[in-house]
């Protein structure tokens, strides 16, 4: 039992942290591109990103599963019922959230800042890195929110991962399975550990956020 819990816990952390990292990379890049292109002011773009932030996770799982299914267009990759497949599904769920927060964070910066950085001599990469530094607290908040969404998500990982014991079972799918079997005690243990994991990782990110806010003081 103990070994199983540790294994499921480690798998959950692996899937959610990986998905958050992928989504942070994609979402921050996309949000930055939209903000710099000034299309982030467009109501249509804002509505699209907001819709993405509220995507039903089971629907995302269904679409990803259909794509990864053996007879699907990406079936040859053999990712259905695998951890990478689950990471892809969760990353797709988290990316719009990170994109939306990034876009909003960069829109909060002075509108003239990108131009100002360019006139100070920054090239495009230096300008983008500086904008991220200016919005660093909000960007870390985006990562924290993304991780929170990934670690608590159950729909997509069930559909794409299949909740296979010793292979793709994660904390949320283990809780659902134990509840369905009437084993509430085990489900509560899994739930408590999941809460602990979420608290630990968010605490870590909050600490990084505090340090980031104070960074560059000298």
């Amino acid at each position: 039992m103990y070994d199983t819990v540790i294994e499921v816990l480690a798998r959950s952390a692996l899937v959610s942290v990986s998905a958050t990292l992928v989504a942070a990379l994609a979402g921050i890049s996309l949000g930055t591109a939209l903000a710099l292109a000034r299309v982030s002011d467009s109501r249509a773009v804002i509505a699209l990103v907001n819709t993405g932030m509220a995507l039903p996770t089971v629907v995302v799982g269904l679409v990803v599963a259909m794509l990864l299914w053996r007879s699907g267009p990406l079936g040859g990759l053999g990712l259905i019922y695998t951890i990478p497949g689950m990471v892809i599904a969760q990353a797709l769920i988290v990316t719009p959230l990170v994109t939306g927060i990034t876009m909003a964070a960069l829109r909060q910066l002075p509108r003239s800042l990108p131009d100002q950085l360019r006139t100070l001599g920054a090239n495009r990469l230096q300008m983008v890195l500086r904008l991220w530094l200016e919005a660093r607290v909000a960007l870390l908040a985006a990562a924290m929110a993304g991780f929170g969404l990934a670690i608590s998500e159950v729909g997509a990982v069930t559909v794409v991962g299949g909740n296979i014991h010793g292979h793709t079972q994660v904390m949320t799918t283990a809780i659902v399975e134990n509840v369905s079997r009437g084993e509430f005690g085990v489900a509560i243990i899994y739930g408590s550990i999941l809460l602990g994991l979420a608290f630990l990782i968010n605490g870590l990110l909050a600490s990084v956020q505090r340090r980031a806010a104070a960074w560059e003081r000298n």
């Binding site: 002075p110 003239s112 800042l113 100002q116 500086r130 530094l133 200016e134 560059e216 003081r217 000298n218």
Partner: peptide
Amino acid sequence: RPGLLSTS
């Protein structure tokens, strides 16, 4: 507007 960056 000076537009100083949020650093020292």
